[in-house]
Amino acid sequence: MNYISPLATVATDLQPAVSVRGLSRRFGNGSPVLDKLNLDIAQGEFVALLGRSGSGKSTLLRALSGLDPVREGQISCPQESAVVFQESRLLPWKKVWQNVMLGKTGATRSDARKVLEEVGLGHRTDAWPLTLSGGEAQRAALARALIREPKFLMLDEPFAALDALTRLNMQDLVSSLWQRHKSAVLLVTHDVDEALLLADRAVVLEEGRIRAELPISLPHPRRHYDPAFVQLRSTLLKHLGVDE
């Protein structure tokens, strides 16, 4: 595929899993949505991407996942990558386990079931997607990504449409999955707490460039009331242009 540079084939532990160099993207004749953007994600690193609505977060993800062609700049990222979107995007006419296996040659129903159990959805293996709740559908979408054993996982506001309680459960799930699988993760979110709970590093996108980076070196599991957490939150909010 054209968006993967030859660099990716000789990846070592020292090399970042994902590297973006000088990536630009504009629609029509307007100002660029992405403007010579640089970003590295280390192997096994969890990066949260923040920025106000329309700042180009999804545009960056679409370029990384190969949905949009890269015309200006370079991207290198692992062949084994997977994306989870805000909507589960399950095929309604295939049972949950068939959706999980979609496009994964050699996988069996029991493989699918195993992954579904890992995301806490083993009991809905044979369900039709339209009968799932919002949270269950996102779990199925996560399972569909996990069965591919991705080295790089992209999540585009995966919990934005869920209710607050379900979102907390899903954040726990993603945190434990990541600690087990240790793939590189890029999570797009507009929820500062979510970024601080999950990520190793928060990155703020503004006017097409990375405006701020904030390492989050708190031990897991993280607590909202931890003074260090509270401190980081106000720093991050300041970067996002919000004064408490």
């Binding site: 996942s65 997977a82 994306v83 979107f85 909507e87 995007r89 006419w93 295939k94 979609l102 591919r148």
Partner: peptide, 27 residues
């Protein structure tokens, strides 16, 4: 179109997309 986009991120072939997405979706 979001489903079709999803099949691209899963790297489904054209014939798989027709068989698993387009035909059942149009049924």
């Amino acid at each position: 179109p979001k489903l079709l986009e999803m099949t691209r991120t899963l790297r489904l072939s054209r014939s798989q997309t027709i068989r698993d997405v387009i035909l059942p979706g149009a049924l």
